[in-house]
């Protein structure tokens, strides 16, 4: 235990004391606060989405979600930029890769279609059950990760990923503008008919936006994963040289 450790432990002890007071005196609300009560009361007639969280994320706070998607895009761009200088020549993988084991290779072949299907399900049912574009996109990207683990040499074209991402991003903005033109404001999803409450094709443009977000998030995560994988390629090229 150096002085540094004691200092850190003391500071965190003070922070823990503050947390203790917050948690010990905490009394849960008896009723929803006005904002949440409004969301709960108007989910059916304003968004048509039974899942309140999706209704908040995509319709009421749609602008925040657009910003969030932008942050994610920035992240994937910066990761690619930071790792770009250690990029391996196109098509070349490092010689040092161990081949993936039998279990991983076979398991990937079996699981990949299921993961893709599950991702699509989570995206498509985002307005009905827990899920949505972000979760489904992450599921899709986990499939990409599994494929990268099983076949370290596999590459999805950067051009393809970039195109999927920019087309879905542009589509998101266009849907938002359609809300401005045909409904009450930017990213208002009610310009399409709300449909029967609880049906798969309902809730106006929410499923459409979920699909666009899912594709965009999946493409961004895949770009990040692939950038990290390519950095590894370059290191092994250099070690071999």
């Amino acid at each position: 235990m150096s002085t540094r450790h004691i200092l850190i432990a003391g500071l965190l002890g003070l922070l823990g004391l503050a947390f203790w007071h917050l948690a010990a005196d905490y009394l849960p609300d008896a009723a929803l606060n006005p904002t949440a009560a409004y969301y709960a009361a108007h989910a059916a007639d304003q968004t048509g989405a039974p899942n309140l969280v999706t209704g908040i994320i995509i319709t009421w706070r749609g602008l925040d979600t657009l910003g969030e998607v932008t942050v994610l895009f920035l992240t994937s761009a910066i990761v690619a930029l930071v790792l770009a200088q250690s990029k391996a020549p196109a098509g070349a993988a490092g010689p040092g890769f161990l081949p993936a084991g039998e279990l991983l290779a076979t398991g990937t072949r079996m699981l990949l279609p299921l993961i893709a299907l599950f991702g699509a399900y989570v995206i498509a049912n985002g307005h009905l059950s827990p899920g949505g574009g972000f979760q489904g996109g992450a599921v899709l990207a986990s499939g990409v990760l599994l494929a990268l683990l099983a076949q370290p040499r596999m590459r999805i074209g950067h051009a393809l990923l970039a195109r999927v991402e920019s087309v879905s991003g542009l589509g998101y903005i266009l849907v938002g503008l359609a809300g401005l033109a045909f409904a009450s404001g930017f990213l208002d999803t009610a310009f399409l008919p709300l449909g029967r409450f609880g049906a798969l094709l309902s809730a106006g443009a929410i499923p459409l936006i979920s699909v666009l977000i899912g594709l965009k998030v999946g493409a961004e995560f895949a770009t990040i994963l692939q950038s990290l994988e390519e950095g590894e390629d370059a290191a092994q090229e250099e070690d071999a040289a």
């Binding site: 969280v53 994320i57 925040d64 979600t65 969030e68 942050v71 994610l72 920035l74 992240t75 994937s76 910066i78 990761v79 930071v82 790792l83 250690s86 949505g132 972000f134 992450a138 998030v217 995560f221 990040i224 950038s227 990290l228 950095g231």
Partner: peptide, 20 residues
């Protein structure tokens, strides 16, 4: 939900810088 996604982005950035 937002915080998880942003947290993932921050983690990816930290890993990329650590790698650099």
């Amino acid at each position: 939900l937002t915080a998880i996604v942003i947290g993932l982005g921050v983690t990816a950035l930290m890993l990329a810088y650590a790698w650099r």
